[in-house]
Design a protein around this nucleic acid. Structure first.
Length: 491
RNA sequence: CGGGAUGUAGCGCAGUCCGGUUAGCGCAUCUGGUUUGGGACCAGAGGGUCGCAGGUUCGAAUCCUGCCAUCCCGACCA
């Protein structure tokens, strides 16, 4: 089986690349470090978008759009911010091309140099806060709860399809508040939304936590994160939410008059998830037969495949298939009936497995005679034959069951690969041989964190929000520690 | 930016060391036929600036020089 995919156990990253390409989600483009998201991959992103967008709206947010280009000077306003992003910015310096005077080809017209160079946004805090300055005068203008769906560019050295590309799609929320408490509440609320989405739609269990100073977003006072565990034992940061304090308000001079008539700087948050989520989806659930998609995010939830020899057979099968399709669609289930006659059923079975379609129905002459239908589920690769008359209800509950099962499987995997470690040699050994999440004590200093990273390539993924106080000794230095933090090697 | 590798049909590759007919194979595509309950088969057909630019030679995918691009491994990162 699956002879077209690299074996997951043999070479995980090759398996991942193969899968993205073979399932027709994305491909490499002519531009180094940039990918083409193909219709099937984009359809998954659209599902992600539409669900998240609903959740944002439900929490009071509205969408807007800000420019792709940011004047270079905006970046230098906030010191940490510029330091964090300077190394990976694409810069626009000219606005015109012309024909090469010496012959063929096109060159940049040197006379068309921009007065001020423009940075292609790696994130939009600066351009947005420059606008917010004009929007905010009084506490009555607050809060501002805006989200934008956009592309951003971060010039990466090493790229991987969906996980890290130079240009990627994401959403970025940018909110402005009258008080610190309210902004912190927003920051926490949104990491909660992300965790909810990850677990209930993507079927990926996540650990909510706070980043260390070192791993914090450039310009934030606090960064909240959701961390997921992939099947190869590496962690993936799946979403972040930042409490920005008054840093950007000060940088862009955004003050407001509060109820008592005093002037104060506005409090800010920002939060985002990207097309990286699709990478997470792939790496959390898929197997050697291909993609495994949770029903709630699968572009096609059910595929129906006819098995026939003659035109007459196809006709009578199609009648049944189209009726079932209509019934399922009436229940809000997305169905594809694949009656192409240029591929064998076997090919189709394999192909839809590769693409991760949760439920496959097959109808053949035998079924027509017996009033039955074959139902196969992608998550367990099992098949059963059931009565045709019961099919719609069966599929409906099966989709729910698959969604739950995929999550439980991922949760079980995470539990089996989460360890509490107290000795250094054991720490190193676990990282090298087991991978996974490691809860260990840390003395709280950046020096120790960096030393551990240097020695083991593992990082502190977060200080979990639900971690209990527990006296202990730092895994590296032996100094006292008040609680465990989450370590892992990460993407 | 350092180390390694590769560029030949849409994709995957052989041929390059040791220059010599008309550049070949698998997959895919197209045509016709037989098939169809787990990646079908037969027959035929189309498809190439051999990464680019120079050079050596009677003759270059093959040798030489320069350039370009991509991939892998490191430092940076959602």
């Amino acid at each position: 089986m699956a002879k077209f995919l690299t074996n997951r156990e043999e070479n995980y990253s090759q398996w991942y690349n193969d899968l993205v390409i073979k399932a027709d989600m994305a491909e490499y483009s002519a531009v180094r470090g940039c990918m083409v998201i193909k219709p099937y991959g984009y359809a998954i992103w659209e599902k992600v978008q539409s669900e998240l967008d609903k959740m944002f709206k439900a929490t009071g947010h509205v969408n807007a759009y800000f420019p792709l280009f940011i004047p270079k000077s905006f970046f230098s306003r906030e010191a940490d911010h510029v330091k964090g992003f300077a190394k990976e910015c694409a810069v626009v310096t000219h606005y015109r091309l012309k024909n090469d005077e010496t012959g063929k080809g096109i060159v940049v017209d040197p006379t068309a140099k921009l007065e001020e160079e423009l940075v292609v946004r790696p994130t939009s805090e600066t351009i947005i806060w420059n606008s917010y300055k004009n929007w905010i005068q009084s506490y009555r203008d607050l809060p501002i709860l805006i989200n934008q769906w956009a592309n951003v560019v971060r010039w990466e050295m090493r790229t991987r399809l969906f996980l890290r590309t130079s240009e990627f799609l994401w959403q970025e929320g940018h909110t402005a508040h009258a008080t610190s408490e309210e902004a912190i509440e927003e920051t926490e609320k949104m990491i909660g939304v992300y965790a909810d989405f990850a677990e209930n739609f993507m079927a990926i269990p996540v650990v909510k936590g706070v980043k260390t100073v070192n791993e914090r977003f450039a310009g934030a006072l606090d960064t909240y994160t959701i961390e997921a565990l992939m099947q190869d034992g590496k962690a993936l940061q799946a979403g972040t939410s930042h409490f920005l304090g008054q840093n950007f308000a000060k940088a862009f001079d955004v003050q407001f008059t509060d109820k008592s008539g005093k002037l104060d700087y506005v409090w800010a948050t920002s939060w985002g998830v990207s097309t990286r989520l699709i990478g997470a989806l792939i790496m959390a659930h898929s197997d050697n037969n291909g993609l495994v998609l949770p029903p709630k995010l699968a572009p096609t939830q059910v595929v129906i495949i006819p098995i026939f020899k003659t035109e007459e057979q196809l006709d009578s099968i199609s009648k049944e298939a189209n009726r079932i399709k209509a019934d399922l669609e009436a229940m809000g289930i997305s169905v594809k009936y694949d009656d192409r006659d240029n591929n064998t059923p076997g090919f189709k079975f394999a192909d839809y497995e590769l693409k991760g379609v949760p439920v496959r129905l097959a109808i053949g002459p035998r079924d027509l005679k017996n009033g039955t239908i074959e139902v196969a589920r992608r998550d367990t690769l099992t098949k059963e034959t059931i009565q045709m008359s019961a099919i719609t209800e069966h599929v409906k509950s099966l989709l729910r069951e698959i969604q739950k099962n995929i999550f439980n499987k991922a949760l079980r995997f995470r539990e089996e690969n989460t360890r509490y470690v107290d000795r250094w040699d054991q720490f190193v050994d676990t990282l090298d041989n087991e991978g996974g999440f490691i809860y260990a004590h840390w003395d709280g200093t950046t020096e120790t964190e960096e030393k551990i990273k240097e020695l083991t390539k593992s990082t502190i993924r977060c200080i979990p929000l639900n971690s209990k106080d527990e006296e202990g000794k730092c895994i590296l230095t032996g100094k006292p520690s008040a609680r465990r933090v989450l370590f892992a090697r990460a993407y």
